[in-house]
Nucleic acid binder design. Structure first.
Lengths: 205, 205
DNA sequence: AAAAAGTTTGACCAAACGGTCAGGATGACG
DNA sequence: CGTCATCCTGACCGTTTGGTCAAACTTTTT
C-alpha cells in the first residue's frame, strides 16, 4: 500500500495540480456535482491527460479525502495529557477555528462527504477516527472526574467543537448573507465568542 | 404570485408525493446528485408524469426549500421578548434540537444548499432570514445589556445554536460511526449537554 | 352519452457525463 | 543523434441526464 508516489517531476507537478483543482471543484459542487471536465480545466489539463494520472473520478476523490484526513485530525491529536486541561481544550478550539478560516475548502469537502453518508470514507471514520476520539474522550473524562474541568460528556464536547468551528467554513455563505456586507470577516468575533463559551462551560465551578 | 395551489384531489396528492420523494432524494444525494428518474420512482410516478406537475428539477427543489423555510424558522420566530431570557433561549435550543431529531432530511436539504453557496435561495437568506435574525439579535442584545443574561455577541449566539443543533442531523453518519453501535441515539445526551452549555454560557454571573 | 378537461405514458432527443484508445509529441539518457 | 519511456491529445463510445411530445387513457361536466 505504498511506493506509488510520483516518480518524475512532471508527475509530481501534475498530480498536485489535479488534486488542488479537484479540491476546489469537489468542495464547491460535491462529488456527483463535480465533473472531470471542470477539474481538468481548472488544473489546466485535458480530460484524457487527467485520466492518465488518476484512473477514475472516485480515486481522485478518495485520494483527496485520505490525504487530507491527517491534516484534519492533527489538532485533536495534539490534545495532550500534559498541559492544563482547560488551556488544552481552548487551544484545540482555536486550532480548529483557524483551520476553518484557512482551509474552508477542505472543511466543505468533508462536510459534503459526511452529508452523503460518508460513502467513500466510512471505514476510516469508524476505524481510525473513532479510535482517536475514544482515546481523547477518555483523557477528557479523566480531567472531568478529577475536577480539573466541569462535568461534561466528552464525546459531545468534541462534537460541539467540530460543529461550532466547522460551521464557519461549511455555512460561510449563510453567515455572510446574514451578517451582511458590513461585517466581512466573522472570525475575530467568532474566536472571542467561542473562547468565552468554552471557558464558562469548562470552569470547574 | 399566488392561487397556483393544486385544484384537484389528484394534483394535491401527486404534488405531495413528489415533494416528499424529492425531499428524500435531494437530502440524500444533493441537488446535482439527485435524478428525476429516482424522484419519480420513489414517488411512484413516471418521469414524464412528474414533469406534468413540475416544469423542471430546479422548480421542485426551490419549491421544497421555500415551502420548508417557514417551518425551519418557526422556533426562532417564537423567541419572545415576554418570557425569561435564559428560558427563551434554552427553549429555542431545545426546539431546534427536536427539529434535527424529527426532521433530519429537511436539515440536510438546507445544509446541502448552503454548502453549495445557496445558489437557489440566496435572496431569501439575505432578505427574510437576515431581517428575522437581526430582529432577534437586537432582542438578545437588549437582554445582554440589561444584565439579564451574560454578555454575548447575539449573532454568534444564534450561529452557535444553529451549528450545535443541526450538527446532529447533518453529520449524523459521522456521529453514529464515532459513537459506535453501543450508543444508537445521541439525542438525550445531546439535550443534556446543550442545556448545560447554554445555561453556563448565559448565566449573568 | 358525449364533449371537455385533466392525467398518464412510451418513445424520443440533445447534451453532458465518465471513460477509452491509438497514435503523436516530448522529455531523459546513453 | 538515436532510442526508449513518459506524457499528451483528438476522436470516439456507451450511458445517463433533464426534458419534450403526440397520443392514449381517465375523470369531470353538461
Amino acid at each position: 500500500m505504498a511506493a506509488d508516489r510520483p516518480r518524475t517531476r512532471i508527475q509530481e507537478k501534475n498530480r498536485r495540480a489535479i488534486l488542488s483543482a479537484a479540491l476546489k471543484v469537489f468542495s464547491a459542487q460535491g462529488f456527483r456535482g463535480a465533473t472531470l471536465d471542470e477539474i481538468a480545466s481548472v488544473a489546466g489539463l485535458s480530460k484524457p491527460n487527467l485520466l492518465y494520472y488518476f484512473p477514475s473520478k472516485e480515486v481522485i476523490h478518495v485520494t483527496l479525502l485520505e490525504g487530507l484526513m491527517d491534516t484534519w485530525l492533527d489538532p485533536l491529536r495534539a490534545l495532550s495529557a500534559d498541559g492544563d486541561p482547560k488551556a488544552e481544550i481552548l487551544s484545540y478550539v482555536q486550532r480548529k477555528l483557524e483551520m476553518s478560516r484557512d482551509l474552508p475548502r477542505e472543511s466543505r469537502l468533508f462536510a459534503n462527504e459526511i452529508l452523503q453518508g460518508a460513502p467513500h470514507i466510512g471505514p476510516l471514520l469508524s476505524g481510525d477516527l473513532k479510535s482517536l476520539v475514544d482515546e481523547k474522550a477518555a483523557l477528557i473524562e479523566g480531567w472531568s472526574q478529577d475536577g480539573r474541568i466541569g462535568p461534561v460528556h466528552p464525546h459531545h464536547l468534541i462534537f460541539s467543537i467540530w460543529a461550532l468551528t466547522q460551521h464557519y467554513a461549511d455555512f460561510e455563505s449563510q453567515i455572510k448573507m446574514v451578517l451582511g456586507p458590513a461585517e466581512p470577516d466573522p472570525y475575530p468575533e467568532a474566536e472571542r465568542y467561542l473562547t468565552r463559551l468554552y471557558e464558562r462551560m469548562l470552569d470547574p465551578e
